[in-house]
Design a protein around this nucleic acid. Sequence first.
DNA 1: CAGACGAACTTAAACGTTTCACTCTCTTCA
DNA 2: TGAAGAGAGTGAAACGTTTAAGTTCGTCTG
Lengths: 345, 345
Amino acid sequence: MQRSSKKTSLGPPQKPAQKRATLKEVAKTAGVSLASASYALNGTGSLGEATRDHILQVADKLGYRQNLSARAMRTGKTGALGLVLPDLTNPFFPTLAQSVIQTARQRSYSVFVTDTEGSEELEIASIRLLVEHGVDGIVWFPVGDRNTAGTLLSGVPTVVIDRTIPGFESIQADYAGGGRLAAEHLVQAGHTSIGIISGPTDVLSMRQRCDAAASYIQQHGKLAYRVVNAFSTDLEPKVKEAIRSRAATAVFVGADLIALGVMQYAQSIKLKVPAQLSVIGFDDVPWAQMTSPALTTIDMPLGEMAAEAVAALLRRTDEQADLRRKIVFDTALVQRGSVQRPAKR
Amino acid sequence: MQRSSKKTSLGPPQKPAQKRATLKEVAKTAGVSLASASYALNGTGSLGEATRDHILQVADKLGYRQNLSARAMRTGKTGALGLVLPDLTNPFFPTLAQSVIQTARQRSYSVFVTDTEGSEELEIASIRLLVEHGVDGIVWFPVGDRNTAGTLLSGVPTVVIDRTIPGFESIQADYAGGGRLAAEHLVQAGHTSIGIISGPTDVLSMRQRCDAAASYIQQHGKLAYRVVNAFSTDLEPKVKEAIRSRAATAVFVGADLIALGVMQYAQSIKLKVPAQLSVIGFDDVPWAQMTSPALTTIDMPLGEMAAEAVAALLRRTDEQADLRRKIVFDTALVQRGSVQRPAKR
DNA sequence: CAGACGAACTTAAACGTTTCACTCTCTTCA
DNA sequence: TGAAGAGAGTGAAACGTTTAAGTTCGTCTG
C-alpha cells in the first residue's frame, strides 16, 4: 500500500468575508433600544406587535446571528454539551454518539465530542477543556471504573454511561440479564457443555455479563472453561487452546469483537460454526449481521440509553437531580446464524 | 426482540456543586490587579518571576479554570471547531471524526460534531448553530455537491472534504486514480469482461471512480454492464439481474457497503466469490477485512485527510488562505480475498 | 544630577448579550 | 378629576476576560 503523496491544484473563485451584525446594530438600524431588540428576538418582555415584527425583519435583513458566547456570559448557559468517549472507532460508539447528538439537537444543544483514546490522562485533559468551555452537561463513558476525572468537573451535571462511578447518575444496560439470556439460549438449544470467553475483567459490566452466564450454565449444565481475552479479534494462546480442545460445543463471548475473532479462528482450524461450535456474542455491533455466519448476540439499546442520558442531563437544569439514581435498560437476544443445536454424539 | 422496560434503582451518595473561581477572585486573593493575573496565566506581559509564580500558585489552589466564553468575547476566538457529517454510523465517518478530534486536541481545540442525517435542511440548521457558537473553523462533509449551506457561514473558515463546492478549499482523495487502480487490478488478474456497480451518481466523487474504471476497462477489455444502486446492501432488481446474467467474471463496486451486498447476493444464488465472481470495492471501511471472503478494495487515507483539513483550517487563522486550493490524496489498492483469476472457459 | 529608559504593575475600556429597574403615556374607574 | 394601573419602551449594569495605555519606581548614562 504505497501512498501519501499530496497534490495541490487550483479550482474556482472566492467568497467574501464579512463581520456578523451585532444586536446593537440591529437595534440602531431598527431605531429602538438594545433592550427592545433583545426582547424581540427572544420573544420575552412586553413589546408591541408592530415593533417586534419590525425588529425581527431588520434582524433578518442584516443576517443577524446571535453570539452564544456573549449570551453564555450573561446567562451562564452555553448551549453546549460534552460527550466523552474512549474510542470513536470502536463500533458501538458511533451509534451512541449519533443518538446523543440527535437528541441534543432536538433541544437546540450542540455537542463537543472527545475521544480519549482509552487513556485516563487524555480523559482528564478532555474533561478539563469541556469545563473551560462551560458545557451545560457531560455524557461520560469512562475509560474504566475508577473515578479519575470526576473531581475535575466541579458542579457540571454529568451522567455516566455503562460504568459505575460513585456519586454519578448512571445509565446502564442489564448486563447480568443479558448474560443470563445468552446462556439460556445456548442451553435451550441443547448445549450442555458451554465455554465462556470473557473480555477484559477490569470493567464491571464485563464481569457482570460473564458471571451471570457462568452461574446459569453451572446450574443447567457444565461450564467447560472460562478464559479471558483482550478486547480484540486477536486471540491469546490460552483462548485458542480452549477452543481447540473442543471441550465445549458452544461458547458465550463477552463482546462481539472477540466473538468475531473466535469465529475466524474456529474456521481457520476447520471447526465449523455453528455445526461444531455455536457462538453467541454481546453488544450487537452493526457488523454483527455481516459476518458469516451472522452472529447471534445480545443487543443493548444504545440509542435509547444515549437519549435517556441527554434527557437526564437536561432535566437537571431545572430540578435538583438525585445523583444516586441508576437507570437500567433491558437487553435482548437477537438470533442470527451462529448458534444451532449441538451435533448428536 | 422484546424490550425497553426501564428500571431505576438507588446507588451511592452525592458530590458538592460549587461555583468556579473567576480571574478576579484569583487576583484579589493574590493581592494583585486583574491584569496581572491575566498576564500570569497567559504567560504574556512583563511580570516579575516571583509575582507570576505566586499568582499561578493561588490560581491552582483556588482550582481556577478559565472561562472560554468570556475569553472568546474579548478575542473573537472560541477555541472550538465544527465538524459537519451526514451520518456518523456510516462506517467511514468515525475514522474521519476521530482524526479531526485528535488533531484538533493536539492544538487545544475542541470539536462540535454534528450529524445531519443526510438532510440538507438539518445541514443548514447545524451550520447555523455552529456559526452562532462562533466556531473558529468548520470541517464540512456536505450531503451533496450543491452549495446549500455555504452562504450561511459568513466568514467562518471552512474546509470541504470529499465533495467539490465552488469557493471552498477542498480535500479529496484521487477517486479517478482509485477507480483506475481497481480496474487495473481486475484486468491484471486476467479478467476481460468486467461489470461496474455504481453508487448514487449525484455525487461527483462516485461518478469519478466509476468513470475512470469504465474508461480503463473499455480500453483493456469489455465493459459487461454498468448499473447503479442506492448506498445500501440491499440490491435493486436490475443490479441483481446484472449479476445473475453472469455477463461479467468480475465487478468493480463503487462503495464497500454495496460490495458487501453484492457478495451476499452472489453467494445466495450460489455464485462463488471470488471463484466465479471477483469483487472489488471502494472505501476500505473497517469491516472490509471481516467479510468472507475478505474484501479487496481501494483505500483512501481518511485519517490523513481529516488531519490535513484541520491543519488547513488553523493555518487560515494566520495567513489569508487560497480558497481555490484543492488538495488531493492518493488512493491505494488493498488486496484481500475477493479477487482471483477468472476460471478457464 | 537631570533626564531617559526599562521593568513591573495597574487602570479601565471593550467584547455582545440579558434583564432589572425605571420612565412615560394612555386608559380606566371611583 | 385624579389616582391607579397597564402597556410599551429605555437605561444601564453585569457576566469574565484581554489588552492598550498609563503610572510608578529604580537604574543607567552622559
